[in-house]
Amino acid sequence: MPSYVGVALCSLIGLVFICASLIGASVLRPKRPFASKTEAYESGMPAVGDTRGRHEINFYMVAMLFVVFDLELAFLYPWAVWFAGAQTVESKIYLGAVMAVFIALLGIADIVAWKLGVFDWGKRSD
């Protein structure tokens, strides 16, 4: 049995189960919407404005950092398996040293972001 059939089967089970319960509930439930009921919740006060406004830059910075770090991690995965399979001490030291350089570069990126205040919420530098 090809292994991806099981993965597809589980996704399908999840999809069908959720759709079935949502459709099942739509038969049971009432539907009597009116303006003040469907309004966005703001602790009982009438909602003011909408949400498509500006927000802190840090979220964007973290998203950019994530893209960088996650890609670097994706490079590291095959390396980890390769390292586990390396037989001699010399090859392990070589592989370790190569990756140490790579991770040191990553570390510099982290420190730069740290100094720029990307991880400090609520402290405006302006």
Partner: peptide, 12 residues
């Protein structure tokens, strides 16, 4: 109880 509750979608 959750199955019998109304399903609301906020405007906008």
């Amino acid at each position: 109880k959750l199955g019998a509750k109304e399903d609301l979608i906020p405007p906008g």
